[in-house]
Design a binder for these strands. Structure first.
Lengths: 216, 216
DNA sequence: GAGTGTGAATGTATTCACAGCA
DNA sequence: TGCTGTGAATACATTCACACTC
């Protein structure tokens, strides 16, 4: 029954299941075991992840790819488009603006912010760049609920605070700073140095299992 | 005692502790509780993480910042420099080449590889670009043990296989593809779309805890 | 027969709580 | 007295195993 609580990590796996399902023919049937192998987990785990949210399978057969894809999309909230705002249009920020993968999942970076006067008012990869003081106005106007912070050195805390005040509900932060997690928004950190340090640890201590990022 | 096994996630936290310690004066003393607050965990967790590897604290006082920094560096294998190879010098790859944070932790991207003939033979951010067929030769020559894969569309599997054959022991993969984890190397995935999908899930289902990338 | 859905059993991580030391 | 180090207790996640359904 869907009465149990799903593990914190279910969302990560659901997203991975989805990635795989998207590459398959919709009318195919896939078993939990088959799906599990692609992301390196067990059939039982897949079944459990799914049964928290409902009964999507056909006993004795498996799961209908198209239907399961739709159900997982719904669980993850991907049955609609998401507007995203980017703060920090440096090298990394620009790379993210040009990143193709987002659009396929319904994520659109609609506006970006940077202090560099030579790009304010221009468009990069089709996305307009504004000064950060416009964050509250623009975020509210466009009803944006997700933010990406890729400011090069410091001041990510200010960016995050501004976004949250403006109504953003989840933020992906690339700045390698321990930021104060705002109470009313979900914060996810991506820290490249951190990743390499973990790799260093695993080489040094010869631990061999695979680790999905992550976190986060 | 250090007899117990450390949790898989310890490396992630150790890296975060380290990041914080680096910003402090070496002669200061910090308590487990204080350190914990900066990365959003408990004092008990910090103490446990550390006591897997030895006894670094002073009872009744706390930990000496400089000493602890050194010890954690050693545990993570950061007491030496690491040569890193990058495969895929697109927008994201270039951003990584110019990324400052690596150098401070002893990571040096020494060589890079790309198929684009207009950049082969040149240097980008001071790093020479070679054709991928040179991977085995160059990796062995330079005794490189870590790789970053940021190839734009496909073929990350080939890149990964080539790196591993050449002796690379850990790989950070940015390509949003479910790759076959090589048996004799540590593979870490960073998938931006995946991250946003998790954020979508958390907003949609109003879950509020913070998640470190992670996640690994 | 084959594979889902799901309680029960196991394994792993975190928190508690406190003895012992500076 | 204040904080570490660490077993014991708890919470959480994964795996097992099997009744049940198509």
């Amino acid at each position: 029954m869907a009465g149990n609580k799903s593990p914190e990590s279910a969302a990560i796996r659901l997203s991975l299941y989805l990635r795989h399902l998207r590459k398959m023919k919709k009318e195919r049937i896939i078993s939990s075991e088959e799906l599990a192998q692609f992301i390196g987990t067990s059939g039982a785990r897949v079944r459990k992840d799914l049964c928290y949210f409902g009964q999507f399978g056909i006993a004795g057969k498996g799961y209908l790819v198209g239907e399961l894809q739709e159900e997982i999309s719904k669980i993850l909230g991907l049955d609609k488009a998401w507007g995203v705002a980017l703060v920090g249009v440096g090298k990394l920020g620009s790379a993210l603006l040009g990143y193709d993968g987002f659009r396929k999942s319904g994520f659109n970076i609609r506006i970006s912010f940077d202090v560099k006067s030579n790009i304010i008012g221009k468009k990069i990869a089709g996305v307009p760049v504004y000064h950060p003081y416009q964050i509250p106005k623009m975020i509210r106007e466009q009803k944006i609920r997700m933010g990406i912070v890729a400011v090069p050195v410091k001041a990510p805390q200010e960016s995050i605070d501004l976004l949250v005040i403006s109504g953003v509900e989840a933020i992906l932060n690339f700045s390698p700073i321990t930021v104060i997690a705002p109470a009313d928004a979900k914060l996810m950190q991506v820290d490249f140095t951190n990743q390499l340090e973990i790799m260093s640890y695993f080489i040094t201590n010869k631990v061999k299992e695979k680790t999905q990022a992550r976190l986060f």
